[in-house]
Design a protein around this nucleic acid. Structure first.
Lengths: 228, 228
DNA sequence: GACCGAACAAACAGGTCAGTCTGTTTTATT
DNA sequence: AATAAAACAGACTGACCTGTTTGTTCGGTC
């Protein structure tokens, strides 16, 4: 067969394809269990092309962290919470949305940040820094939202910074349990408990303070749905 | 050099040595980043001996999970909580104890269960089951403690089962943040927030209800408090 | 339209991996 | 003491893994 005669260079597109493929593989198998050959196969790229864009596997991973994982967190977590009416509501909706997604797909791959965090943070400084930066931005975004709540008289207790960390931690851990049990249940439990946690902390001293009706919480189906 | 002429077989000891060495390596580098040769070197064992006791790396890992990791969880987490006066106090003490340990050592390797959970749960059913079992026992032990609290009139709200899951999740996630930031701070935050979480939930409507004096709870100035 | 660096192709290389194989030593049994 | 099985020793194997090398094609510039 003749070598394809119409080859059009498209560096950015190829680079993107590699990053996306790698992100998917990391998500499914992790860093160490993913070989560069897997990446090449999945992305449909040759070794030359791959190493032209990413000199080493580590460089590729760092690019994935900064250009894919970070974005994923922003899109699925940070942005929805920021847009929400309150931190409490935002967090609850995000968690339930994610839990619904897991139920739909019937499997739990876990949170990409956490997956890589636990696999790579201890061994390598560069990875640690890159991942830490994502957590920090995540945490700070939520803290900011908490401060906004507070400014609106909605939330009183605790340092926003610490509240945010607790929220992120609870979610991360719930996702770990979810992955281990291959079930969305831990996430739903976490959503409920965080909701009550926020309720306890906000139901006081706010003037509107309508007695927050507790939702039936019937786990299954019947969830309104957001976002397309 | 002559081949050591006094060799005494001690299967259990050797097996134990291998498991311990492997557990340490997994804890530091994870499953995939640890080679069987690393294990052999660390444990001072030959390939023949290693494969006599553990036919495959996977079998070794399963043994580590069931015979080392599970025990570690029991010792450092479950047992202290069970022994404690209450779930709240037990959880708080364990978290602070762990945080202190991290500060002393100046580095954070993370929780062995979580490390392996996130690395292995998705890819392999056997690993998933083994790790899930540990989480379940962990969760159940705490749930039992919560029920004991309740029987003693100390705790009212929420399903013990779910409360336990939330506690485990929050801790796990806090440890993930701690690992990513290489700092014990997230754990301390988690300890504090879980303590307040328990306080909120126990200060209410218990019939023996001696008005549970709230303990100082350390560091931060105490905000006004909950009705009660 | 000649030229040159960037973008790609693909064979290759040294090293490591998990696991095997053959053989020796120890230990329990009798 | 004879024997068999268990417990070990250590060389070896083929697959795989990351990264290199050498060469070819594209695309903008003069």
């Amino acid at each position: 067969m003749e070598p394809r005669r119409t080859r059009t260079n498209n560096p950015q597109a190829l680079r993107r394809r590699v990053i996306d493929a790698t992100a998917a593989l990391f998500q499914a198998r992790g860093y160490h269990a993913t070989s560069t050959q897997d990446v090449m196969r999945e992305a449909g790229v040759t070794a030359g092309a791959l190493h032209h864009h990413f000199p080493t596997k580590k460089a590729l991973a760092l690019a994935v962290i900064e250009e894919s994982v970070a974005g994923a967190v922003d899109e699925t977590w940070v942005a929805p919470v920021v847009r929400a009416r309150s931190t409490a509501r935002g967090v609850r909706d995000v968690l339930e949305c994610i839990a619904d997604g897991l139920d739909e797909r019937g499997r739990v791959q876990g949170c990409p940040v956490n997956n890589l965090a636990l696999e790579l943070s201890f061994g390598d400084r560069d990875f640690q820094r890159a991942i830490h930066a994502i957590f920090e931005r995540w945490r700070e975004a939520i803290a900011k939202k908490v401060r906004a709540d507070r400014a609106a008289g909605r939330f009183t207790k605790g340092r926003p910074d610490a509240v945010a960390a607790f929220v992120v931690a609870s979610y991360s851990g719930a996702m770990a349990l979810a992955k281990a049990s291959q079930s969305a249940e831990p996430l739903r439990i976490c959503a409920r408990h965080l909701a009550e946690y926020f309720a306890e902390r906000s139901a006081r001293r706010t003037r509107t303070s309508r007695p927050r009706r507790r939702r039936p919480l019937g786990r299954r189906r019947r969830r309104h749905h957001v976002r397309g």
